[in-house]
Design a protein around this nucleic acid. Sequence first.
RNA 1: GGGGCUGUGGGGUAGCUUGGUUAUCCUUCGCGCUUAGGGAGCGUGUGACCCCGGUUCGAAUCCGGGCAGCCCCA
Length: 485
Amino acid sequence: MPAKKDEKENLLGITAKKDADFSEWYQQVLLKSEFVDYSSVSGCIVLRPAAYAVWEKIQSYVDIRLKKMGIKNAYFPLFIPESLLKKEATHLTGFSPEVAWVDYGGNTKLGERLAVRPTSETIMYDSYSKWIRSWRDLPLRLNQWNNVVRWEFKNPVPFIRTREFLWNEGHTAFATKPEAEKEIKDIMNLWVDTCENVLALAGIHGKKTEKEKFAGAEYTHALEFVTPNGRLVQGPDAHHDGQIFAKAFNLKFVDKDEKEKYVYQNTWAITTRMIGVMIMAHSDDKGLVLPPKVAPVQIAIVPILFDATKDKVVAECSKLKKELEKEFSVIIDDREGYTPGRKFNEWELKGVPIRIEFGPKDLEKSQAVLVRRDSGEKKTVKLSDVKKEVEKELEAMQISLLEKSRKMLKDSTVNAKTFDELKKAIDSKKIVRAMWCSDSTCEDEIKDKTGGAKLVAIPVDEKPSGKCVYCGKKAEHEVYVSKSY
RNA sequence: GGGGCUGUGGGGUAGCUUGGUUAUCCUUCGCGCUUAGGGAGCGUGUGACCCCGGUUCGAAUCCGGGCAGCCCCA
């Protein structure tokens, strides 16, 4: 029996519309699906089991591939002595406004206060300086999975901007620049692969402008993702640090030619922010939509229970579950006292990719009903074909979500020749591709006159030609301009 | 960095202007019965005034401060 319209407001499901009230919608999707919760610490969220499971999927996909590349995992301290954090000037300036400090141990004031790591370059390179002596010690390629704290004062947005977040941080040292730069390419390929094939997200591979690059890097590559409310968000990145930290931390080695040289370094990371980007992109007015490759539960079997056939239906569902869980993660929702409709809505809210309905009619005809979360499409299949069909639909869903993401990126992008066009596009929540003279004055002016739109990325596939969108001088680069998180 | 709005059971709310008995309603949650192919029904139970201070005989309500969340602008 359908719920009365005026009662719907108070039911389990989300009431905000993605198109009409994006941030309210985003919040409701996360909270009502029991994906995350707020905590008593401002700007810090709780990843509930479903969210953490998604992170574990991302983590394991990336971790396996990093290890194949020859990178090893290690763990360095959470705390960084102030003196170490101060060693590289640009780095310090970049991070110091948002560092959280520990001043006391119990009641005892510490002799030197400790930073809670905002990133671990400084504490790691302190060790690296002891470990790197000869060319034989290189390359040194370590990664750690951990948490970092950046005490931001802007409005927190779950996953997108939180004061503490989870990530990996790879920190590597090479004897030569070409080796190091080759790694930047490999890592960026890994990020593209992970985002596209696991999270079903299409991004822009770009280079950061001088203004926007990582504090302490020579240059920064990153993937940028468009959100449904027309902003770009930075995703995973890879920074080539050249010899900047090497000089600050005295990372020298004796090369084969017996000369002392500084190492060349990279740092790179993917963070839990991507989970937020993924949810913004794929989820809808019914709740979460999780790509099959990250979904903690891929299939929910809902038995339709009538007294006369209950036992047989449940038995058949259990058989089905046993068969399916050889390859997929499956749950069977045989809770009594809830109607099927209620269960359907609940699993949709939680973003389970495939639902299987099975009742007396299906028992009679040896069939089951498959429903896809992303399209809502229903399909009746023979019991013997369920496994094959599920596999097919999960793959199709994964691909379809990526295509949708590609389309969103394409539809959100506008080319602008004049500043007027650029401004109009920004105002109508588009992201803009335009030409740029590469002067930071123009960068500042554009930001100023558009209400904060940044030059987010110089696409790696750029073909600069013509004139700067702002000053009209010869263009050096193409850029994506957009408001950002 | 600046401005605005809002905090009442797990969620959504009424009450606040004009202070006054046991804080309203819906939903969730627990239990019992009954139901079951798209958010079922009846009965019953649990559960809240963000925190600190002030005014007052009396504060969810008025005042001050804090904390938190949201929105807009830079």
